[in-house]
Amino acid sequence: MSWPSNYPDSPDDDKTLTETRSAASSPSGLLKDFKVGFTLAIKNILSFGLAMVGILVVTILLLLAILLFIAIPLLFTLGIPFIITLIETISTGFTGSTGLTLVLLIMFLVLPILGPFFIALGSLFGMAREIVESDGTLAESAFSWYGKRGLSLLGGGVLHVMITLAPLIVAFLAISYPTWNPPTNTELRIIITLIVIWIILVNGMLSLTFPGIIDGLSVFRAAGRSVKLTCKFPGRVLGAWFIIVLLTGVLILPIINELTILWMPFIPQRILEMYRPIAIVALLFIIIPAVSIILTRIYMILTAKVDATYTQDNGGE
């Protein structure tokens, strides 16, 4: 038994919805993501700036706390001679060991140091979520996300690193086991190309992990959702990611000392020196916030499209 609708929808409603959906996945949608991302990042530069400074301080304090947490008990229980021996062992490990030992040693040292930075980066995605969803945020919000989603964000960062480094580790182990067997120059060129493609592609596919964690998903579900969304909307996710990589690359390549020789013929040294601090400030206070806003926006739109709750308001605000 059905009941007549006493407030019938316009016959064009479904058509309009389909049109707005297709519009959202078109290149203009991508352009809008960047336009909105940079506009909102600049509009909220003060909040982001203060949050970045605050988070940096907290991150450094957290790193110190981690070091102290490890160092002090070691110092009291095992004594200074043991610490010296440990440092010597680690140094020997770097020079003497090959293969799995070296990989584990690097992971053991690198991951705890990177941990606080992952949480800090994730907190920016929390701020971005507030901006994209409610058109504003406060610097203190970053700390709120830092506290509430800290562990998940840490897990997200570790997962990113592990997946990114996995083939590199396998390649390294293959080269170093059973004996060190360095690749030829041609092989090296192929390996480096494949590694660069892998790093860009896999990080693109996982680029929506942090927005997913901020949305309340667990690390693995967020990563899974990111990959699924990329497979469903490759143009929107990977397109945005490639533009982000390109923009960041163009901005930071000239400030890398080792590559100065590439820029010398085109950019005078004096301008290059002036450019460096500007590029770092732009990267920290505009590009990174804009990227977090862009990715959050894409995540929210694409998940809404998947859940069939997406509409586009064509009227004025």
């Binding site: 959202a24 809008k32 336009k35 909105v36 506009t39 909102l40 994209v132 969803e133 409610s134 058109d135 926006r297 929210m300 739109i301 998940t303 809404a304 859940d307 709750t309 997406y310 509409t311 586009q312 308001d313 064509n314 009227g315 004025g316 605000e317």
Partner: peptide, 15 residues
């Protein structure tokens, strides 16, 4: 529950 996601002309994604 989330019932609708609306993208405004200014780019805000309202849920």
């Amino acid at each position: 529950v989330l019932v609708e996601t609306r993208e405004t002309p200014r780019g805000i994604v309202e849920r």
